[in-house]
């Protein structure tokens, strides 16, 4: 019985395959074919589902009272907390945090990108700076807090400095690697057309690595946000990270949730911005 069913199934499958070859639309979307494209609709549905499913699980878990309110507030609690906070300092906290992250990140990019370009392009720069950069890169940014307070004080500068320390060394390595991946043959082609080293730097290396650099900045913007809470541990009196730390002290779990979610949403917005910019600026780019 079972074997007959299996044979029928197999025959149907073969039929489907034979029919599928010529027909314009395959019977099933081939989700498991590696790198198979999916429709725009499906992609949106899946993205929404990726948010809605955990939300539903969360709602179910809190409704069933599996976990104590203190540890897992319900979505409704979080919503209420958000409304409450938004009448208060949420706007200000958000702006302050965005300012710190963007400032620390921008400073990191402003200093990290040129150094990365130098290391990638000139062997002597690599010999001089790469080892020390890799050495510092593995030190946790949070460990610099005492030093930063000592050097920069407890003002706005210290928060920006922590975020700066968190990203700058990563930007340097990643940009240097991107520069090294520019094929030698591009440089040689430019030289045979009469380009000077400075021009090769400007017209070939800089132009050629632009897409990767924007990608690197996108990734590091994400990391900058992860350093926010650490940065706002330093004598802050506002900001999303500060609010989260404060909420922890008062066991206001719902507010912690709100803070984390708001950071996530802002991060997502920045990510989408960078992606959109990438697509607009580099229509020629094929990774």
């Amino acid at each position: 019985m079972g074997s007959v069913a299996a044979q029928v199934h197999k025959a149907q499958a073969e039929d489907g395959r034979r029919g599928g070859r010529g027909s314009p639309r395959p019977r099933r979307p081939r989700l498991w074919r590696i790198r198979a494209p999916i429709s725009r609709r499906l992609s949106v549905i899946l993205a929404v589902a990726g948010f809605v499913l955990p939300l539903a699980l969360w709602e179910a878990a809190s409704a069933a009272h599996i976990v104590a309110q203190l540890f897992l507030p319900s979505p409704a609690d979080v919503w209420a907390s958000l409304r409450h906070w938004s009448h208060g300092a949420l706007g200000h906290d958000t702006i302050v945090s965005i300012y710190r992250v963007v400032a620390g990140f921008a400073l990191g990019a402003l200093i990290g990108v040129p150094i990365g370009l130098m290391i990638g392009a000139y062997r002597w720069c690599a010999a001089l700076l790469q080892p020390i950069n890799d050495f510092v890169r593995y030190m946790p940014a949070s460990a610099f807090i005492p030093l930063v307070i000592l050097w920069v004080g407890i003002g706005e500068g210290s928060k920006i400095a922590i975020i700066f320390i968190g990203v700058v060394f990563q930007i340097v390595v990643m940009v240097a690697d991107a520069v090294r991946k520019v094929p030698d043959s591009y440089l040689e082609a430019a030289y045979t057309m009469g380009a000077r080293p400075g021009e090769v730097m400007k017209y070939v290396i800089w132009r050629g690595t632009w897409p990767q650099i924007v990608d690197i900045l996108r990734i590091n913007m994400g990391w900058a946000w992860t350093y926010l809470v650490v940065a706002e541990m330093v004598a802050a009196d506002s900001g999303l990270g500060f609010a989260i730390l404060q909420a922890q002290r008062f066991l206001d779990t719902a507010k912690i949730f709100v803070g984390i979610i708001v950071i996530g949403l802002i991060g997502l917005a920045f990510d989408l911005f960078f992606r959109a910019m990438h697509k607009r600026l580099f229509p020629w780019y094929r990774p």
Partner: peptide, 9 residues
């Protein structure tokens, strides 16, 4: 060159 060295950008 044998491989294209056109600047893709």
């Amino acid at each position: 060159f044998q491989q294209s060295t056109l600047f893709p950008w």
